[in-house]
């Protein structure tokens, strides 16, 4: 997936640059940089660096396939890379299996939550999200799930709607 993400970034950077070139003015009639100048600069830099990045990720994958070893996934690649750069072994946070399927489920639930927020109102959308989430990942605790699924949305709805006077979508029932 790493190389596909890198490929996606390259495609986006090409699209960004071409769209910018097609729709924006680069230089004014007086020869000064116009609205498209900076985006073009960013776009070109992005295309070059994304292409090099994709090449690197591709080669890495090929090398892994040849050697048959998979790198351990990193809990915090940025922090670990910084630690490694300074010769400190950021031990103890690597390893373990991953849960890609759960990520997909949680992400779909989040999308569903946002999609139904306007039609059913924020409170009901929160309750439905929590019920779906908790009964997927915490099935054993039925009663506490039910209480939690109403209590937390109730608290947050009260906090934002009543105390902070924020504008939240309301259901046809008025909440």
């Amino acid at each position: 997936m790493k190389k596909w993400f890198a490929a996606g970034l390259l495609i986006l950077s090409v699209g960004y640059t071409l769209y910018g070139l097609g729709t924006l003015t680069l230089v004014t009639s007086s020869g000064r940089p116009a609205a498209g100048f900076f985006p073009l600069l960013i776009g070109v830099l992005m295309m070059i660096s994304c292409a090099v990045n994709l090449w690197g990720d591709w080669r890495e994958e090929l090398a892994q396939r040849r050697s048959g070893t998979l790198p351990p996934h990193q809990a915090d690649p940025e922090a670990e890379a910084k630690a490694d750069a300074l010769g400190v072994d950021a031990h103890g946070i690597d390893g373990g299996m991953d849960y890609s399927r759960d990520v997909l489920i949680v992400f779909l639930y989040i999308c569903g939550f946002v999609a139904i927020m306007k039609p059913v109102g924020a409170f009901l959308a929160m309750v439905l999200f929590m019920l779906a989430f908790l009964f997927t990942f915490n099935r054993a605790h039925v009663v506490s799930n039910l209480i939690y699924s109403v209590a937390l949305p109730g608290f947050l709805y009260g906090l934002f709607k009543v105390l902070l006077n924020a504008s939240l979508p309301t259901s046809p029932f008025g909440f």
């Binding site: 946002v114 939690y148 934002f160």
Partner: peptide
């Protein structure tokens, strides 16, 4: 998890 999601979205 639900606390974070709800806080983020709302």
């Amino acid at each position: 998890v639900p606390v974070i999601v709800l806080l983020c979205i709302i």
